[in-house]
Amino acid sequence: MIKVQNLRKVFRVHKKPPGLSASLKSLFRRDWIEKVAVEGADFTVEEGEIVGLIGANGAGKTTLVKMLSGIIHPSAGEARVLGYNPWEKHDAFRRQISLIMGQKAQLWWDLPGADCFQLLREIYQIPQQQFDHQLNRLTQLLNVGEELNIQIRRLSLGERMKMELIAALLHSPRVVYLDEPTIGLDITTQKAVRDFLLSYRKEESPAMILTSHYMEDIERLCERIIIIREGELIYDGSLRKVIEQYAPYKRLTLHLQNQTLDESSKEIFSKMGEKVQIQSDQVSIQVPRKNVTEVAAELLRKFKIHDLSIDEPEISDTIEILMGGKDLRQE
């Protein structure tokens, strides 16, 4: 459904030092810098797939999404979405896609949700029966039936986001881009939005690309992730695999049996691994993946242990390492 080949976007940005003299100088001569937002992106997304696009601020996630929705033009490369070139903006293409931007309201603030949806029905030429059915279903799923007749500007952030979701999905798009859909929402609303997206995926099977800084969004919704760093796609694969393949350590946690830890014990832990955390009778150590068995055996030999567990690191930790600078392309 989405096929991207060597997509590139470079922004030319005016650079101006602070101060009046620099401002005056920039009237006659401007300094420009080229900022590569997306560099040679290659990937595909199939029907029913939710792909998480992960990266730090300014990594190029939103630019990529904007290109694939046709809002901005690329500097080079190709993309086909539902067989269309997105930035040619064919009406047939635009009728089948949707973009939800958590940081930017797209509804008309002076109108109640119900009127906004009627307007969208006209824009997308949705048959009345289909519109009524879809609106009814979406409002029930998101539990916002009572807010439909309230002006958008008077709704809470969570309610507004739910309205945005309804607006974006009324025309049953086959491709949905979600740019930080849960940003700023409380935990309950975040969960409601995630549950809604999962049930929507189950029923409609659209291709979805999700960008989010909340790892819980990614963990709950995406089986596959794409990590983008400074415009370059550095990982494209399953979410689980990223840990197995790229987390260099595991975390050993031991509960000791009524044992007081002296300085020599602490020294032993420090030699076995990194980031040693000691809390009363519980010790946690970060151990290189290849040494886990050996370290666990040695700990069992040296200490009286009530319980020992070996855990994979948090996904967020691994991804943070990847986003921070580990170069996966050489591995």
Binding site: S69, I71, D91, R94, I97, S98, L99, M101, Q106, I123
Partner: peptide
């Protein structure tokens, strides 16, 4: 302010 984006998404 980027509000133009939503109109670019609509089939109109």
């Amino acid at each position: 302010d980027g509000s133009l984006s939503r109109y670019l998404l609509y089939p109109l």
